[in-house]
């Protein structure tokens, strides 16, 4: 009888403490919303790039994908572009692709920008923000790292240093 009571009390208290703890964990570490995060399968998408080519994410299965969301008007995006270009040239051979999704800008602006920085990686144009919305992109730049199996292995919204980009490339190298 006494044993049973102790068990009951302990169980009830434990359940409540876990519930409260998990709630706090969620309130601190999970931002609300439905965005794509580490561990999720990267949703497939189809866009046309700056040069008019069709880009489909699934076609890159087997390769690591450095998926970057950016805009010409965003200073931190601009800062990381030359680094991305340089590392693209290094890692392209090793099976890592950069997809720099432009968030709803005009071809004129993006073309000028790409020419200025001599960007050679594909720039899919997300005119209608469909991909941006589906990936729950808030502030840009946001970079999502996808491994060869199409799984998201990292997500960050910071402006990247060249060193950081190298470490990301290493991480998703097949």
């Amino acid at each position: 009888m006494k044993k049973k009571r102790l068990w009951f009390r302990s169980a009830l208290l434990a359940i409540l403490v876990i519930a409260i703890g998990y709630t706090i964990y969620n309130s601190i570490f999970e931002e609300s919303g439905t965005y794509i995060k580490k561990g999720d399968k990267a949703p497939n998408f189809v866009l046309t790039d700056l040069n008019g080519n069709r880009v489909e994410l699934e076609d890159y299965r087997g390769k690591g994908v450095f998926l970057n969301f950016w805009g010409t008007w965003c200073k931190p995006c601009e800062r990381e572009m030359p680094y991305m270009q340089r590392q693209y040239e290094t890692y392209k051979e090793q099976g890592v692709e950069i997809l720099a999704v432009n968030v709803s800008e005009t071809n004129v602006s993006v073309k000028n920008f790409a020419d200025r920085y001599r960007l050679t990686f594909p720039i899919p144009m997300d005119k209608q923000r469909e991909v941006t919305k589906a990936y729950g992109i808030g502030p840009i730049p946001t970079t999502i790292l996808i491994d060869k199996n199409g799984k998201v292995v990292g997500r960050t919204s910071e402006s990247l240093s060249e060193k950081k980009i190298i470490s990301f490339m290493e991480k998703i190298k097949p």
């Binding site: 998408f45 189809v46 469909e130 991909v131």
Partner: peptide, 8 residues
């Protein structure tokens, strides 16, 4: 349609 791909 059900088979819609994002961006298409």
């Amino acid at each position: 349609t059900p088979n819609h791909t994002i961006g298409e």
